[in-house]
Every structure is written in structure tokens, then in C-alpha cells.
Design a protein around this nucleic acid. Structure first.
Lengths: 209, 209
DNA sequence: CCTCCTCTTGACCATTTGATCAAGAATTAT
DNA sequence: ATAATTCTTGATCAAATGGTCAAGAGGAGG
């Protein structure tokens, strides 16, 4: 077998450091411009690295993008996973919504990265959507359904309730430009969280007849 | 004054027809790939027109994009504009939400076009957001505020209520890939509309004490 | 029919951009 | 120290892409 130039097998310190640098820069660039709009040169510049050097760590532009998505996909599921079937429904949902709002505030770039990917048909994460995500949502929908059956929650379609929570919470990250423009100022995240909780939860309380 | 080649002044039938063809094709392409991801060649191919011919009608790629945005911006405001201060609050909001859901279903491409533009910082429609849109939202927020003051609606922040309505309704157009993947089937727009109305409106009813 | 203006296109150009390569610098292991 | 491996980069390439141009085809009015 001829000797072919192979990528390093081990992960050296330099590799770990530079890969981190690249991913951080790539998040900035991809979230701002999308996959097609981002250029390798921009990412290289932001990583303070020459383009060939960047491509030494990630052979293709797409590899950076995919790594970035994978790097954050599981974080994305975490808050929903923590929805506790044994807990009080309104408390649990309140915690979930608050966690999502805080994620939007703390990491709007990651949110925009996903939004852009899904908006364009999710070519890279189709399997994630149809696999782990769908699975988890199905499971938690059953939990919500059981709360409704127990009379602890107003009857709503669990799937659409989850969609509504995603939509509203991510709106503040993905469309922050519009939110700020309409409000005429930087949005106050505390106030937004409070308002969102009221709007989404108020209708879920069981009415006493 | 030297004779300079000028664009035609009048709008001939051929111009009207071809501009329509181009805008229709461009909506397909831009909504699927974003501004940067779309290519003039793709739009030309979809319009069944040579690239130079397309550029005879719109000198630059950006001109097509801007024309497309302007072409639909005012349509976008219409449903909110129709919110009637004299009407019954829940009926009015219900009609507004239904109208938005129907727009998402009827024209998801336009919705995605806007979503993409805003996601990337709204460079082309900043003035629209800070001008007409903000103006209209401010006006309708006052209407909602007056309904609350009259005890006809639960107390919620009007701006955030409007954001929530936008977020949820547009979610079904912008993130339809995710919705379908999670549901495991094409989303049923009738069912979605019903669920959304319940989720958003139920909490707005005034509780009898 | 003829003229003027509109419409259409093949060929072409300059720039951007993702990616490669060879060669040298730095680091690590022996 | 020195050999082996990893890291870095200037130069370069091919393809993609936005846009131009000159020349001809087509249509409308006189």
C-alpha cells in the first residue's frame, strides 16, 4: 500500500485550541450570513489564521458548518428533556419556557444558525429532526397529554403547544432586529420573559367551574 | 448633451409580463436559498430567459430582491391594519390570527423571504421596520391597551402579544420542514389553525371573579 | 415598406471563492 | 541533538458568478 498523506490521529493541544477558535469564529460568520453567505476567508480572518491553515483543520467549508451544528444540537434538546412528568405542569412548563428564553438571550447566534438551516430545508440536520428531535417531542407530548387527562392542564394539542413555545421563545433571538425596530429600543429580556410566560401559560390553567 | 443609452420609459406589455415572470421565479429561488445563496442563473433558468435578458429588466441581482420585498411588504401589514377597535376583542384577534395562519399556508415562500431577510439583519428593509411597521404596531398596541383598560381582555403587554402572534403563525411557514419532521407527516393546516387559536386566545379571556 | 425603439442572446470579462500544494517553521518524541 | 511529526503559509488553480457588450431579431407606428 502506498504511503498516503493522512490527517493526524491524535488530538494535540494545538488542534483542540485551533478547532475551538475556528468554531467560535464560524458561529459568528455563519449565523450572520448563512452557509452560502459565509466565506472561508471571513472565518479564517476572524480566527486570525491563514486560510490554508484553517483548511488543515477542517478540509471543507461544509465540515466546519456540520461540526458547528453537531456541537450544539444536543444542547438544544436539553431543556425539553428536563420536563419532569412528576412535577407540577405549570411549574414545569414555566421552567421550560424560561430556559428557552434564556438560551435565546445567551446564545442568539446558535439560534440563528439553526433557524437559517431549517429555513433552507435543513439539508444537514434532516436526520436529527426526524430522529432524536421527533422522538423526544413524541415522548414529552405524552407527558403533556397525561397532565391533560389528569385534569391538571387545559386541553391543548401537545405538539402544537411545543411548537408555540419554540416559535415564541426563538423569535426573540432570530428576529431581534425586528423586535428592536418595532419597540424602538433594545428589547428588555426580563420584561420579554415575563410577558411570554403570561401569554403562553395563562391559557393553560384549568378553569374552575 | 451626448445621447446616452437609457432604459425604456414606458411599461410595455412584454415588460409587464417578463417582470412578473422574473419576480415569480425569483421568489422561488430567493426564498429557497436566501439572497446570497440564490444565483442570477437560477432565476434566469426558472424564468425561461437568458441571463442577459433578465438583466435587461433588472440591472442588478439586488434590484430583483428589493423589488420582490417591496412587492409584498404592504400585503404583509394588511391583516393587522384590519384589526377593528370597535369590534369585539376576541373576535378581532381571532380573525387576525386566522388571517396570518392562512397567509403562512397560502404563501410560505414570501414568509421565508422575509424571515431570511430579518434573520440576516434586515439590511434592505430596515426603514420599513422602523417606519411603517413600527407605526402600525404602536397604533394597534393602543387599541389592545384600550381593550384591556375596558376590562374586555386579560392584561398582557400588547407588543409582546403581537410578537407572539407573529412568531407562532409564521413558524408554520418558516419552519415547516421541522414541523413536518416532528409530526412525521405533512402538517394539517386546519388542525394547526385550531390549535393555535386555542393556545393564543384562551389566556386572553377575562376571568369572571 | 421602412424606421425607430424594444427585446434577446452568445460571447466574454473580472472578481470572488473553495480548495490544493509544496516547502518551510515549530513542536514533540527518541 | 536529531529524527519524525505536526503546524503554517505564500502562491496558485479551477469553477462559479455577477455583470457587460455588441449585434441581431422582433414588433409598432408612419
Amino acid at each position: 500500500m502506498p504511503h498516503t498523506k493522512a490527517k493526524p490521529v491524535v488530538n494535540t493541544r494545538i488542534q483542540a485550541r485551533n478547532k475551538e477558535l475556528i468554531l467560535a469564529a464560524a458561529l459568528d460568520v455563519f449565523s450572520a450570513s448563512g452557509f452560502r453567505g459565509a466565506t472561508v476567508d471571513q472565518i479564517a480572518a476572524k480566527s486570525e489564521m491563514s486560510k490554508p491553515n484553517l483548511l488543515y483543520y477542517f478540509r471543507r467549508k461544509e465540515d466546519i458548518y456540520v461540526a458547528l451544528l453537531e456541537h450544539t444540537l444536543s444542547d438544544w434538546l436539553e431543556p425539553l428533556r428536563e420536563l419532569n412528568p412528576e412535577g407540577d405542569p405549570l411549574t414545569e412548563l414555566s421552567r421550560y419556557i424560561s430556559a428557552k428564553m434564556q438560551m435565546s438571550e445567551a446564545n442568539p447566534k446558535a439560534s440563528r444558525l439553526f433557524a437559517n438551516e431549517i429555513l433552507h430545508g435543513a439539508p444537514m440536520i434532516e436526520k436529527f429532526l426526524k430522529g432524536p428531535l421527533r422522538q423526544l417531542v413524541a415522548e414529552k407530548s405524552l407527558v403533556i397529554q397525561s397532565w391533560i387527562a389528569a385534569g391538571k392542564l387545559a386541553p391543548v394539542d401537545p405538539h402544537h403547544l411545543i411548537f408555540a413555545i419554540w416559535a415564541v421563545t426563538q423569535h426573540y433571538a432570530d428576529f431581534s432586529v425586528q423586535v428592536d425596530a418595532v419597540l424602538g429600543r433594545r428589547e428588555d429580556s426580563k420584561a420579554a420573559q415575563k410577558a411570554v410566560l403570561e401569554i403562553l401559560l395563562r391559557g393553560l390553567q384549568v378553569k374552575q367551574s
